[in-house]
Design a protein around this nucleic acid. Structure first.
Lengths: 206, 206
DNA sequence: TGGCATACTGTCCAAATGGACAGTATATCA
DNA sequence: TGATATACTGTCCATTTGGACAGTATGCCA
């Protein structure tokens, strides 16, 4: 990657500062105005050079669509906070916002999907899900709402405690296969509240 | 602050997701298109309602200038890019930068420690580490360099393939306990190259 | 000497964009 | 019953914006 000239660096820094300050990405004319250019083409030319050098990316025709390609800067984007529960409360519903004691910030790319309002995280307590290779202390990320497919892992509410189970369709009827020996192998899913479908897992050592 | 309607919440979430994913703030027409509105005024109307309710701020006349008043959502920090290898190359050393085909962006908080230059990620292939509840397709994050403590999981190079093993101190001598039945239970660690110490794991469903 | 990148000014234009207005329809609330 | 908020369709328009083109000038390198 070729080195940037002083002017290109200055323009790069200006864009970064604006974005970091929470303001919208500057337009070509705003850049020109900030640097005192009489022509916005000067700004456009520098931006083009930055794109050519792999510093910026742009979506052609879209206003204010500059993005940084630079590793760390680019990755500042794409972080989403997912509410984390120690255990899913019994009255799980719309008002769970208040019950989230903390949040897990994750990058969209690392978990492989875009979290929605229905996405939540659960801290695993105990080894009851060890059959699914999910250990004590793991953080699982689940999505509330979608109908699980057969074979998927779901979080279900049993005895006011949420446990991970495998969702199965047997003869067209939905069952939950327990991963914990304390419970029967197959449970008709109608008796249980399915909290969410397993999407991702994060394990920290120590 | 008045409560948001479902539709307003959906539009708020859409804007948040787009911005969080690093894409430019959607225009009114892009919002309308995403929700299938025939008229962009519908989107504009909802945005106006969100501004009125204090959720969003807008700079009049500026394209893609929506901002969240919320604050917490805009906190993007602590993202680090970790080089990801399909398999650790034999000549693992300083020059591994070039060999990283891709990177995993993670937040420091989600993996529980601050990655250094010696931190790397490894995509698990096969079930050879299932004994450690690490599955095919998982991404493990390791740190190169530090002397492992007894009982910690390490990545070791065997037959030009890296495998996870448990590091043990037996009578003061270091051994690696295999988690793969194809290898002897205990291997003197001097014979092997320890690539790194297990730090964290990320699993994606599907 | 020519070619090339940088660093601008100045102009024109089509597309993108936000804003305003005119309607329609359905709720809720007083 | 009327006022208000929601939830749209549809249209017109001024402004914003990016893109392309024509020039000028400087410095660097081969």
């Amino acid at each position: 990657m070729p080195a940037l000239t002083d002017q290109q660096q200055a323009i790069r820094d200006f864009i970064e500062t604006e974005v970091a300050a929470g303001r919208p990405c500057p337009s070509q004319r705003e850049i020109a105005e900030h640097f005192g250019f009489a022509s916005k083409t000067a700004a456009a030319c520098h931006v083009r050079a930055l794109v050519k050098k792999g510093v910026l990316a742009v979506e052609p025709g879209k206003a204010r669509s500059l993005r940084f390609m630079d590793g760390t800067r680019l990755l500042r984007q794409g972080v989403v906070e997912i509410p984390l529960f120690g255990s899913i409360p019994a009255g799980f519903g719309r008002d769970r916002e208040q019950e989230a004691d903390e949040c897990v910030p994750v990058t969209i790319e690392s978990i492989g999907f875009k979290p929605t309002r229905n996405t939540f995280a659960l801290r695993v307590v105990g080894d009851s899900m060890i059959g699914k290779h999910i250990c004590d202390g793991d953080v699982v990320i689940l999505e509330h709402g979608p109908e699980p497919r057969s074979g998927q892992i779901v979080a279900a509410l049993i005895d006011r405690k949420s446990t991970l189970k495998t969702f199965l369709l047997k003869n067209g009827k939905p069952f939950l296969k327990a991963e914990n020996s304390k419970y029967p192998e197959l449970i008709p899913s109608e008796e249980l509240v399915i909290q969410g479908v397993f999407r991702a897992l994060i394990r920290k050592e120590e």
